[in-house]
C-alpha cells in the first residue's frame, strides 16, 4: 500500500556542529539552568527550618557562590562562542545569526509560513531549507545573544560593587547609567524569564524538526551530524541564510 508513493532516499552525512560548538552548547545549557535555579533562590530564598546557629551554615553563601561561578563560566563561554563565530565552520559563522541580506528575511518569512503557519508550498508539506540553522532560528539565536549581553552587563554590574578584580569592575558603569542597583537588579530578573520561555520553545522545536524532517536534529548536538537527502544534496537545493556562494540554483 505504501509502496505506490514510497521513495526511500539515501541520506548524506554532513558534519554540521563542530566539537567546540557542541561543547559550548551543553556548557551553556548547564550553566543557564544553574543560573536560573540559583537566581530564583537568591531572589526569594526558602524559609529554612533550622535550629543551627548562623555560624554553622552557609546556604545563601553557597547558592550565591554557585551563581557567581556559573556566571563566570557563562561569560567566558559566551566570549568563546563569539570568537568561534569568526573562525568556525560556515554553520557557526556570525552570518548565520545576523541578517545581512534580503534573502535572510525572505527565508525567515518562508520558515514562518511552513513551520509556524503550516501553509503548504506547491503542495509540499515540508521544505528542506537549511542544513545548519534556518534563518528564523539563526535570528532568534541572535536575540538570545543580546539577552546574554543584557544579563552579563546587569549581572556583573551588580557584582562589581563587591569585587576587587578588574574584570567585573569594568561593568561598574552599568548601574550608574541605569540609575542604581535597584533597577539594575529588576532588569536582571525580568530578562531571566526570556531564557525560560526560550528554552521551552527551543526544546520543542528541536523535537518538532526531528519529527517532521527525520534528519537527526536531536542527535546533531551530540555527534555533530545531520543528514540530508542525496537528491537534495546533488541538486544543491539546500540553502544557508547568507550563502558564501552566489550561484544558487533555486
Amino acid at each position: 500500500m505504501a509502496n505506490k508513493y514510497l521513495h526511500i532516499p539515501r541520506l548524506r552525512r554532513v558534519y554540521v556542529w563542530e566539537l567546540p560548538v557542541r561543547f559550548y552548547h551543553w556548557l551553556n545549557a548547564a550553566v543557564i539552568i544553574a543560573l536560573i535555579i540559583t537566581g530564583f533562590y537568591i531572589s526569594n530564598p526558602l524559609a529554612l527550618m533550622s535550629n543551627k546557629d548562623a555560624s554553622h551554615q552557609y546556604i545563601m553563601g553557597w547558592v550565591r557562590y554557585i551563581h557567581f561561578a556559573a556566571a563566570y563560566l557563562f561569560f567566558f563561554n559566551f566570549l568563546f562562542r563569539l570568537y568561534w563565530g569568526f573562525v568556525g565552520n560556515k554553520y557557526a559563522n556570525w552570518k548565520q545569526f545576523i541578517p545581512t541580506s534580503k534573502r535572510f528575511f525572505q527565508e525567515m518569512w518562508k520558515v514562518f509560513k511552513i513551520d509556524i503557519l503550516m501553509l503548504k508550498k506547491n503542495g509540499q508539506q515540508q521544505d528542506h531549507l537549511s542544513i545548519g540553522h534556518n534563518a528564523m532560528a539563526g535570528f532568534i539565536y541572535f536575540l538570545t545573544f543580546l539577552a546574554f549581553l543584557v544579563q552579563c552587563l546587569t549581572g556583573f554590574g551588580l557584582y562589581a560593587g563587591m569585587s576587587t578584580w578588574w574584570l567585573p569592575r569594568l561593568f561598574a558603569w552599568v548601574p550608574a547609567i541605569m540609575g542604581g542597583d535597584i533597577i539594575t537588579r529588576q532588569v536582571h530578573h525580568w530578562s531571566m524569564w526570556f531564557f525560560i520561555l526560550f528554552a521551552v520553545i527551543h526544546v520543542y522545536l528541536v523535537f518538532y524538526h526531528d519529527y517532521v524532517e527525520g534528519r537527526g536534529e536531536i542527535s546533531s548536538m551530540g555527534g555533530g551530524w545531520k543528514f540530508i537527502e542525496e537528491d537534495v544534496f546533488k541538486k544543491n537545493l539546500h540553502q544557508t541564510p547568507n550563502p558564501e556562494k552566489t550561484n544558487d540554483k533555486k
Partner: peptide, 18 residues
C-alpha cells in the same frame, strides 16, 4: 559600600536565615 555589605545581620543572610 552597600548597607548589606556592612550590615551586622549579614551572617544570617549568608546562612540563609531570614
Amino acid at each position: 559600600k552597600r548597607v548589606h555589605d556592612t550590615c551586622y545581620r549579614r551572617p544570617f543572610y549568608d546562612a540563609g536565615l531570614f
